[in-house]
Amino acid sequence: MAILVIAEHDNQSLKAATKNAVTAAAKIGGEIHVLVAGSGCANAAAEAAKLAGVAKVKVADAAHYADQTAENIAALVVANAAGYSHIVAPATTNGKNFAPRVAALLDVAQISDIVGVESADTFVRPIYAGNALATVQSADTVKVITVRTTGFEAVAEGGSAAVEAIAAGPDLGKSKLVSRELTKSERPELTAAKIIVSGGRGLGNGENYKTLLEPLADKLGAALGASRAAVDAGFVPNDYQVGQTGKIVAPQLYIAIGISGAIQHLAGMKDSKVIVAINKDPEAPIFQVADYGLVADLFEVVPQLAAAV
């Protein structure tokens, strides 16, 4: 039995989510191979080869994999699926995009967003915005799985896997990338940050978000996050959103400022180690999950907090 993990990368370097997926694969048990599909992605492949427990890295290097279009990536994975009992990808927007295509082409179910491995065919996954955990068993011969990164530690380095070039598939030419507007930030990536400062509608506008939260995040070396309401109101870009339908995070410290704590928001952050809530409404549901709650006007206390840490 061998497991194929599909690497997430930006053609230069490996994305952290790949490391959590490898840990999940190790829990399943079996020889782990990593597929790196990209363009000029040798460095990402070399990084994958260093992950502990990885036996082989397969690299498909071709121009039409540069943009990770779902149609091309899924076709490549399917063409290389023979001999694998499990195909594993991180449950990032990229993994969620191509993995169900792989499953459908193989005529198997996908097991989405697993947070636990019970055995080679049985997995735990959250449903209903994390209000329930389902243990599901797959009867399919190949298991296509996406891994919720917060459910598994990142694998350590220390491996030295063989790197092998494999043939690229054809360019299906079904979709074409026109443009990409990636949010530029010097801050840690939201899903990998140790501390997250997150703001909600209570901040009132984008200017307040910036002037109040950035100094605090700078002091703490934190990533910035937001509720959907803050994103919808245009305070911050969409990729800041934490929640059921945004990013799932589990930092050491999550500071929720002016966020009420709707179920959909909690779904994305309630596995954080320590939660701080700052809200002027003592009844706000966020206090039901907060380790430390401060009932106060955020405009008054956030600058104080930034000064004190």
Partner: peptide
């Protein structure tokens, strides 16, 4: 169905913590 649900469980409940008096207390 291809997936069989063996069990559905409630996730571990997070206990509400404490309210702090002020910023100094929080820090």
């Amino acid at each position: 169905p291809r997936l069989k649900t063996l069990k559905v469980a409630e996730p571990a409940k997070r206990q509400a913590g404490v309210k702090v008096a002020d910023v100094a207390d929080l820090v």
